[in-house]
Design a protein around this nucleic acid. Structure first.
Lengths: 107, 107
DNA sequence: TTGTTTTATCGTAATATTGCAATATAATAA
DNA sequence: TTATTATATTGCAATATTACGATAAAACAA
């Protein structure tokens, strides 16, 4: 064997894990930080910002889109990408719940 | 090729990505949520809580420990695991920075 | 000492991810 | 129409992850 035993965990646990999987590559972190830095929709130049070939960047963008971390709108020949505030807030809230429920008396 | 081109990204981007990689498996999310639920150090019964064999659980615990998401203290024969509040707060802060810097005018 | 319990490591098979060349698709320009 | 430009998809090789049986190691009990 070797594949994840997805079926043995709850839907929520699988969803949370796949959200973090989308964030688990430095190229995808770089994309997020670039979109944050320019603070606007970006049409086109993400490929030029990364040290990776165009098909590879396209693949990473697809993963971020599938996880709803970024949104992509078609603007003529180019595609306009930007961060999805809702999803990012959801992740922030997930950790907020953890840290607020956690007593520091432990260990 | 196929391996991550780690060298082409910043140290910080690689560190953030590997923190999320530690969170990218439902078994590790289940471990975190279990430690949160019992709200105390757990000596031993994590293996019984998960639908995975003992070596597999041990491997997942090691990854969480390497990422500083959990701490493990030896207590005689057993090992006492608990969540590392500092790291979890660091992740929460990372998203807080993103969401607060992000204008919603986009897309 | 030997036995028991608990956790870690080794070895390996199954599966998933990463990266890119080649190619395809889509929108616009000339 | 044919170019051009921008992004997506396909196919495949290299590498990484996941899972677990077998085994080792560590701590304690008898």
């Amino acid at each position: 064997m070797g594949a994840s035993k997805t079926d043995f965990f709850t839907t929520e646990q699988n969803e949370v894990a796949s959200l973090f999987k989308a964030l688990s590559h430095p190229a995808r972190i770089a994309i997020i930080e670039y979109l944050l830095k320019v603070d606007t929709c970006i049409c086109g130049d993400i490929v030029n910002e990364l040290p990776l070939a165009q098909p590879t960047v396209s693949q990473h963008l697809k993963e971020l889109k599938n996880a709803n971390i970024i949104k992509g709108n078609i603007e003529g020949t180019a595609i306009c990408y930007c961060l999805n505030l809702d999803t990012l807030k959801k992740i922030e809230h997930y950790f907020g719940t953890i840290t607020s429920h956690l007593s520091s008396k432990c260990c």
